[in-house]
Design a protein around this nucleic acid. Structure first.
Length: 573
RNA sequence: GCUCGCAUAGCUCAGCUGGAUAGAGUGUCGCCCUCCGAAGGCGAAGGUCCCAGGUUCGAAUCCUGGUGCGAGCACCA
């Protein structure tokens, strides 16, 4: 059930009835008619802009439309009052039974809030996709949490979701990794080595070097690179992906698939994707203009194979082949997205770090060209995470190879706290992550505040059960603070759709905070008004009616936290 | 120089498809525990929604032009 959708349908039906009886002209576009929660609760339960939206196309005054519409709406048993206000808003107040009905509906439907908005369309969410050269760090963590929650959100809203990790195992950085592991391998043989610029001296490679020794013995000692590079490269990337999978597991992130860049080579897929573009007249040999502003010292005009990305909104055309004929990094990316399209996805979402912002236009151009505009690509950029400890910037060691890892963060504060906290900011806003703050038990900390509501609900239900109360009763609500909670619960399905439409899972986190706030207010109301307390001493039947509402709150908190990948707690520790 | 993102209360941030008197936390100042978990609640004060134009019944939101901050700008990924 979606109360806002139901009432909107009622408004539309009423408007159509007005058309039928000649009170409104035929052929009006109703898409802009909205039914929303009013900003100010004093205005009522819901408001519609129908009269204002239709005033111009119908050539009528907003108030006249609103008054006529109000008369129709009042005939519905759910509508208690309909008042014209402001420039032509129609403020609706719903009958108390409607809110009781919302609570009843939630208790009868564990999937309350799920939507079919996605209509089963297939969406691929690509996220993390960190280079397989080391463990995941904080920046990756945000991308992992965001992408995972977004994927869950879209699933909840009716999309057919695939979660995928693109392994950049085809480029030069993997050679660097292999050489670094080789040096650790030599060290494992007690040989002393130099660490040249541009290698990865991280401690996490020590055991990889030792593992390599265990596998091949001294077969690669004092041998030319061409002997061992290919094998060590494969061995190392496998080891790194093992680390990364373990990191993802710590966070509770489970991918549906890992897609290897290397697997693109030798299959003809790169060639096929470029040929596809060529057949559309979008590939040509040419020379790029030098970049404006500061000119690189070694810049010189070179003829390259270029993709005419400007035909699809990019600023300049992009090279897909270097001057020497080898592919640029962009070519396998085109091929990878070509493959996504061929696998039949209707929508693509790439979650990238903000430092990849310059890459967005060309990739959108490629997807638009390859799919002839049929497949959409939305690129979500996650901004930096700044670490703090007690309000002070958290000092990271500058020593090469050491940084704050995902594992460090999760070990320090836990996966639930990490996930929720990283979703309390919009993806494109920088995030301050204070190790002390995020585990603090105060309402300043959204994770705690929401979990506290969950714990209180369980506390009440435990006590009720101890008193022998049947926990399955129908709701009995009457106080304003109870209706406030019910109204907030009614917004849940609508909120899910808004969040999904915008690909913005942070809205779920903010909603849960608001719901928790209304719940805590209700809780305290019980201090003054014993009649609204959940536990009605010596009256099991009354308690039964009162605990229905917190049970419904928990259904929604549980669903919301589920989307964020956070487990609701039953008690605070 | 160009592109993208951001700019909202002292501070940290929300703000839906354009909607009414722009919200929350924090901080400041008042209240509220004989009572289900006070780890909480209620209230007060606090605003040039960066600036200037434009679109329209209506703009924090959309458009144009500025300002400031961040990120990125051929042959690396």
């Amino acid at each position: 059930m979606n109360l806002f959708a139901d009432i909107r349908a009622l408004v539309i039906n009423s408007l159509e009835a007005m058309v039928a009886e000649g009170a409104l002209p035929a052929g009006l576009e109703m898409a802009q008619v909205a039914v929303e929660p009013p900003r100010d609760a004093a205005h009522g339960d819901m408001a519609t802009n129908a009269a204002m939206v239709l005033a111009k196309p119908s050539g009528m005054k907003p108030r006249d439309i609103a008054i006529a519409l109000a008369a129709h709406l009042l005939a519905d048993p759910r509508i208690e009052s309909a008042d014209v206000a402001g420039p032509g808003f129609l403020n609706l107040r719903l009958m108390p039974e409607v809110w009781t009905g919302v609570v009843t509906a939630i208790l009868g439907d564990p999937d309350y809030g799920r939507s079919d908005m996605g209509a089963g369309r297939r969406v691929l969410v690509e996220y993390v996709s960190a280079n397989p050269t080391g463990p995941l760090h904080v920046g990756h963590t945000r991308g992992a949490v965001f992408g995972d929650a977004l994927a869950s959100l879209l699933d909840y809203a009716g999309w057919d979701v695939t979660r995928e990790y693109y392994i950049n195992d085809g480029g030069a950085q993997v050679d660097v990794l292999a050489r670094s592991v080789y040096l650790r391998y030599l060290e494992a043989h007690d040989l002393s080595v130099d660490w040249p610029e541009g290698t990865y001296p991280g401690d996490y490679l020590i055991e990889v070097g030792e593992a390599l020794k265990a596998k091949v013995g001294d077969a690669y000692v004092d041998k030319d690179e061409q002997v061992w590079l290919q094998d060590v490269r494969e061995f190392s990337t496998d080891a790194m992906m093992g680390l990364i999978r373990a990191d993802l597991a710590r966070l509770g992130v489970v991918m549906d698939s890992f897609y290897s860049e290397k697997s693109l080579y030798g299959t003809g897929l790169i060639e096929a994707s470029i040929d596809d573009l060529r057949s559309k007249g979008l590939i040509y040999e040419g020379t790029l203009e030098p970049p404006k502003g500061k000119l690189p010292d070694d810049w010189e005009a070179r003829e390259q194979t270029l993709f005419r990305s400007t035909a699809h909104g990019d600023d300049v055309d992009r090279p897909v082949q270097k001057h020497d004929g080898s592919w640029t990094y962009f070519a396998p990316d085109i091929a990878y997205h070509f493959d996504k399209i061929q696998r039949g996805f209707d929508e693509l979402i790439d979650v990238l770090g903000a430092d990849h912002g310059g890459y967005v236009k060309r990739m959108k151009a490629a997807v638009a060209a390859l799919s002839d505009g049929r497949v959409s690509l939305d690129v979500k950029l996650t901004q930096l995470v700044k670490l703090y400890q007690n309000g002070e910037p958290f000092k990271m060691s500058k020593r090469a190879g050491t940084f704050v890892t995902l594992a460090d963060v999760v070990e320090e504060v836990g996966a639930d706290v990490t996930r929720f906290t990283m979703l309390t900011r919009k993806n494109d806003a920088p995030l301050d992550f204070d190790f002390s703050k995020v585990v603090e038990q105060s309402k300043d900390n959204a994770v705690f505040y929401v979990q506290y509501a969950s714990a209180r609900i369980h506390s009440v239900l435990r006590k009720a059960a101890d008193q022998g109360v049947d926990l399955t009763g129908a709701p009995v609500i009457s106080d304003a603070s109870e209706f406030a909670v019910a109204r907030k619960l009614a917004e849940w399905p609508r909120l899910v759709e808004i969040a999904a439409r915008n690909n913005e899972p942070h809205r779920i986190a903010f909603y849960l905070y608001e719901l928790a706030s209304d719940f805590h207010a209700l809780w305290n109301r019980g201090s003054e008004q014993h009649g609204v307390r959940f536990l009605q001493d010596g009256d099991p039947e009354a308690t039964r009616g009162k605990i229905a509402l917190p049970r419904a709150v928990f259904v929604v908190i549980s669903a919301g936290l589920g989307i964020l990948g956070v487990t609701p707690v039953e008690e605070m520790r």
